[in-house]
Structure formats: C-alpha cells, structure tokens
Design a protein around this nucleic acid. Structure first.
Length: 679
DNA sequence: GTAGGGTTAG
C-alpha cells in the first residue's frame, strides 16, 4: 500500500467495518496492509476499548513494535473510562510523548473517576512541566473544581484561563457556567452567560437548567423557546425537566412536538419519555414507544429497559414488567429497584421480598423501596423489621427512609418508636427535610402529642401542602379547633400553598366542633368559588353535621336534597341525631325512612343507626336493630383500642377478647378498682 | 482528550 490516498481510503473502510462489527471485512482490510501499520493498530485498539475488551486492547498495544502518541492516549483514556485508574496512570508515566492531549486524557480520566484532588495535582504537574494547557484541559480542570463544590478554586483557575487567553472559548465558558451552578453561584453563572460573545446549544441548555434548579419552570421554558438553535439534547433536557418536576403531560406534549420538528429522539430521550408515560400510566402510548425501541434495537439499553419495567409495573402489569426485567442482559441496581418497586406498588409483597433478597448489590433506594412498600401495604411490623435490618447491614438511612418509617409510627400511633426515630433522624442530619418534618408532625399529632407536633412544625424551614395539611388536621382532631382555624388563616396569608380538600375538611370539622356555624358555611361556600375545589361527600356530611348540631335542620335537609350526587350515609345520620337533639319529629321521620333504605345495603348503616338510637335513648330500637343484624348475619367491624408498652403495641378489640395476658390484665384491673374504692 | 440531557424509593 504505497499511495497515501489509497491508504487513507482503506483506513476509513476499516473504521466503518469496525463500527458495524463486521469481522470478516475487518480482517480482509487488515491483511491488505503489508507489515505493521501503527494507524491500523490504533483503530483496532480503539474499537476494542469501545466494545469493553480492555485486555485485548492492552495486548494489541503491548505487541506494537512502535507506538505513536495516538496509541498511548487511546490506551490511557480507555483504561480510565472503565475505572482502571492505576493501570492508566502506569502507562501515562511511561508515555514518551508528553503532549497536552495525553496530559488532558489523564486529568479528565481522574475527574471521571471522582478523583478530583488527584486531577488537580496532575494539573499542577502539567504546569510545572512547561506544557501549555489548552481549552480542553481547562474544561476538565474546571469540572474537577466543581467536584469540590467550592468556587474559590475555580476562580484561581479562571485567572490562569484569562492569562492564557482562553476566556472567550465557548467550551471553557460553558464549563465555568456549570461550575457556578454546581457551587450555587447563580448570578455569576448568568453574568458569564450574558457576557459570552458566542453561545452554543450547550450554553443555552446549561442556563435553562439553572432556572429549573431554581424551581422556575416557566423561565426555563421561556429560555427554551428563545433559543436560537436546538438539538436533541436541549429538547431532551426540557422534556426531562418537565417529567422530573411532576409535569409528565407537558413532557409528552413536548416530545410529540420534538418529533414533529424532525428531531429523532435518542436513548436518553426515550428513557425520559418512558418514565413520563409510566407516571401517566399511559400503557397505550408506552407500548407504542416500546415497539419503536425494539425496532431501532435500543431495548438492551439499561436506562430504557429499566424504564420499561417501571412503565409496565406502574400500569399494573407486573407480569409484563417481569418479562421485560428477565430479558435484560445487563441489569443495574435501578432495574432491580424498579421491579421490586413494581411488586410493592401492586401489593405483591412476597414477590417483592424474594426479588429484593436476590439483588446483587442493593443500595439505599432498594431498602427504601421495601420500607415504603410495607408501609403502603399497611404491614407496619415489617416496616420496622426491614428498617432495623437495613441499619444492621450498615446501609445509611436517608430522608426518604425516615419519612416512611415515621409514617409507619403515625399509622400505629406509636409515640415511643416515633421519638426514638426523631432522635435518629437528627443524628443523620435529616430533620430539616420537608418530608421528614411532615412525617414527624403527623407522627406526634396522631400519637396525641400535639405540643411536640406544633414545635416541629414551627421549626420547619420549608413547608409544603402536606405539611400544612397534617398540622391543620392534627390540631382539629386533637380538639384544638380554634388553633386549627387560626393556622389555616395564617397559611392563606403567608404561604403560596393553596387549600386542598383534606385541609378544608379539617377546617369544616373544626367549625362543627366549635359551633362556628356561619364560619363553617362560609368556608364551605368558598370551596369552589375561592379555593377551586369541588366539595366531596365528606364535606357535605360535615356541613350537614354543623347545621344539624345547631338546630338548623331545615337547611340541613335542603342541603342534602340539593346535592349533585348521592350523600354519604353518615350525612343522613348526622341529620337524624340533630333531629333527636332538637326534637323535630317531622324531619326525623323522613330521615329515618331514608336511612332505613340505605341501611339495607350494609352493616355500617345498621351500626350507625343503632348508635343514633342509642344516643337518643331509644333502647328498644337499638335492640331491634342489633337483632336484625344478627338475623341477617351481619357483623359489625369491631372497634379497637391499644396501648404501647416497651416498644410493643397491644391491641384490644371490643368483641374479641384475645390478648395473651387477658387474665392477668383483668386481675390487675380488679386490684386497681379495689384500691380506688378503698380510698 | 472536553462542556449540556437519561432509569428507581418518600
């Protein structure tokens, strides 16, 4: 192969065949070269690195009778890419061609492997050696600075950048913006962006991301719309942000728009959109995308296939999700977590546990998935069991863990466990998180310690809708109805959080228990007009209760009749008890009749009715109903109360005396009663 | 040899 153009064509062909992995054609081309050719060897090395055959690449390199600078750099960066830092550095030190490119390859490799300090040390050595850094070197070095999260370091590098005249380089400026964003210097990032003479898609996307990080999706979208040019990455960025910020429908809209504009979604974008579709539980479109993914041969991508597992599971199809999961050649811990989470979501806790136990390297998300799964499926004992196991395994609980386990405490009203966890949460520095704070407020409130609940709430640096809801609800249900109403008003004055259904229910509940009839009516009437939430059955019931208690029975009955949907049984019984309290035979008659009709349908109605008769002192009627229930084989779902002793909750059921220490308990009670009588 | 976007849990 003498002519240089002939050689050039052969090498282009070789690269092409290597790209499409056509080995027969590759060896044919290689044979066409007589003797050793370093460029051919370099191509083979690069291809093997690309395929992950590191040892083959190394062998090829070691066999070379002579190597050029490209050979050295290829191996150094290749080894770095797969985390083989020491080997890479071994070659770097023996590299006779100490040019900028190989220095930069090593520096960047160290950064890629999270060894930021080593990277900066190597950069200082580079400066000592007299080799001049270039723009690529600076982007890597700035990334190392960003890894430290400290802007000062970056600023001293900036001095060097200015001195060497790279401050107007686009890549360098882009890296500077990224550094500023990672260190929280948003104003500076914006200034650098504004001062750039030339901006590219990367600059625009970086600044777009800044506004998303600040929670300002609107401004981000404005920037996206104003971008002079876009590529598939900027589209993906905006789509991803919508999806991650709880707007999957916007993400889908933009995705369709992107395709309409002729952009072909890449792997990242497909993973993002599948995740958005999972959130939307849109199986139809999701399956379309799945088909497309298979068609273009992307189904082996770990990100995409993990999203597919998630999609099927979120749509309730754990079987299909499992098929997708089982067919994955390469699984990441995220794939495992998605499948485990899928089982949890669909109440298949046994399958979830089996799969969880076989995760090769579970991370804290895996553990949190199990903890959250047991919580959602109300297996509270297991919540604490898994949590303890997690601690024993040395896994660090995070905000997600604590918020789940604390919710578990709230559900079983276990103050002792809750307090213990509060301490642990503080120890792990998670107490100022919104989720943890909210779970603490709820836990204390549900356990009856409203003081602690309020204390935690007042100290929360950030409050969301749920935080306000649980506090308002907690106050109302613990009898602090005035405080509850005051807090609701405070929220309306001071926070951007809008009242939701649950809060308004608590507010109405508070009004009914404080006898604030007109306030209650006013809140009720402003639900739709002011707060934009349609009253549900429970709200109507509460208002009927408010009116009935205060004797405004005609209004209560009117309200019930004017409802746009069927009222709850409770609403009728509230009216009936109002009637018996305020002695209105006429309305009572009609209401009782209505109740009897409803009562036929379920046992709860019978119980309610018997309770109403009981509270009105109509014992004969009570007995009649009880007898009727027995005749028809209906059983009341039992009431239960519980106490917590030494970290264990003991339940006592009204009609089922089954506690293991029942005899002893009764003995002791008798003793206490005797002592009391003696005094 | 480089800068921006990817999947899971509360």
């Amino acid at each position: 192969m003498g002519l240089s153009s002939e050689r050039y064509i052969a090498i282009r062909l070789l690269i092409m065949y290597l790209d499409s992995r056509k080995s027969a054609q590759v060896s044919e081309i290689v044979k066409g070269f007589d003797g050793f050719d370093p460029t051919v060897h370099n191509c083979l090395i690069n291809a093997n690195i690309q395929w992950g055959n590191l040892d083959q690449a190394r062998r090829l390199f070691d066999e070379m009778p002579e190597r050029n600078e490209v050979s050295w750099t290829a191996l150094i960066s290749g080894l770095m890419r797969y985390g083989r830092v020491d080997e890479s550095m071994w070659y770097f030190e023996r590299n006779p061609f100490h040019n900028v490119v190989s220095w930069t390859a090593a520096i960047n490799g160290l950064v890629q492997n999270g060894l930021n300090a080593e990277a900066l040390k190597l950069f200082l050595k580079l400066l000592d050696s007299g080799v001049r850094p270039n723009s690529v070197t600076f982007t890597s070095v700035l990334r190392a600075c960003a890894g430290f999260g400290e802007i000062g370091l970056g600023m001293s590098v900036l001095g060097l950048i200015v001195k060497t005249g790279f401050e107007h380089n686009i890549s360098v400026s882009n890296s500077l913006i990224t550094l500023c964003l990672k260190t929280g210097e948003k104003a500076l990032a914006r200034r650098i962006f504004d001062q750039m003479e030339k901006k590219d898609v990367v600059s625009w996307t970086a600044i777009l991301d800044m506004y998303v990080g600040m929670g300002d999706l609107r401004e981000a979208r404005r920037i996206f719309d104003d971008m002079p040019e876009r590529n598939e990455v900027s589209w993906s960025a905006m789509i991803a942000r919508y999806s991650q910020s709880g707007h999957p429908e916007e993400a889908l809209k933009l995705f369709l728009q992107m395709s309409g504009n002729g952009f072909v979604p890449n792997r990242s974008c497909l993973a993002i959109i599948l995740s958005a579709l999972a959130t939307l539980e849109d199986l139809r479109v999701g399956m379309n995308i799945h088909a497309h993914v298979v068609k273009i041969g992307y189904e082996k991508d770990v990100f995409i296939s993990s999203s597919l597992v998630d999609l099927y599971c979120k749509c309730g199809k754990t079987k299909e999700g499992r098929v997708a999961f089982d067919s994955m050649l390469e699984k990441s811990v995220v794939s495992w977590n998605s499948m485990v989470g899928g089982y949890c979501l669909n109440g298949q806790m046994e399958e979830a546990k089996v799969l969880f136990d076989s995760i090769p390297a579970p991370n804290n998300v895996s553990w949190n998935t199990m903890v959250g799964g047991y919580l959602e499926n109300k297996e509270f004992d297991k919540v604490f069991e898994v949590f303890n196991e997690m601690l024993l395994c040395g896994e660090t609980p995070n905000t997600s863990t604590f918020s789940s386990v604390l919710s578990g405490c709230a559900s079983i009203a276990s103050l002792e466990k809750g307090k213990n966890l509060h301490g642990k949460a503080i120890k792990h520095g998670t107490q100022y998180d919104v989720f943890v704070g909210t779970a603490l407020v709820d836990m204390y409130a549900k356990s009856g310690d409203i003081k602690s609940s309020k204390k935690v709430f007042d100290r929360m640096p950030e409050k969301n809708e749920v935080s306000w809801t649980v506090m308002i609800q907690g106050l109302a249900e613990n009898g602090f109805t005035e405080e509850s109403l005051l807090l609701f008003e405070e929220m309306n004055r001071t926070s951007i959080v809008a009242p939701n259904e649950l809060m308004l229910l608590s507010v109405l509940f508070a009004c009914s228990h404080t006898g604030l009839v007109d306030d209650g009516l006013q809140y009720f009437n402003s639900m739709e007009a002011v707060y934009g939430t349609k009253p549900k059955g429970k709200h109507y019931t509460c208002v009927v209760d408010i009116l009935s208690r205060s004797g405004r029975l005609v209004e209560a009955e009117e309200l019930l009749k004017s409802m746009p949907f069927e009222p709850e049984t409770n609403a009728w019984s509230a009216l009936l008890s109002g009637c018996s309290k305020h002695k209105n035979e006429e309305i009572a008659e009609r209401t009782a009749k209505k109740l009897w009709e409803l009562v036929e349908k379920n046992s709860a109605g019978y119980v309610m009715l018997s309770n109403i008769y009981a509270s009105a002192g109509r014992w004969v009627d009570v007995l009649n109903i009880r007898r009727l229930m027995k005749d028809r084989g209906l059983k009341k779902s039992g009431g239960c109360s519980w106490v917590e002793v030494k970290n264990e909750v003991h339940c006592f059921y009204s009609e089922d005396a089954s506690h293991c220490q029942l005899a002893e308990i009764y003995d002791l009670l008798e003793l206490v009663r005797f002592e009391m009588l003696a005094i």
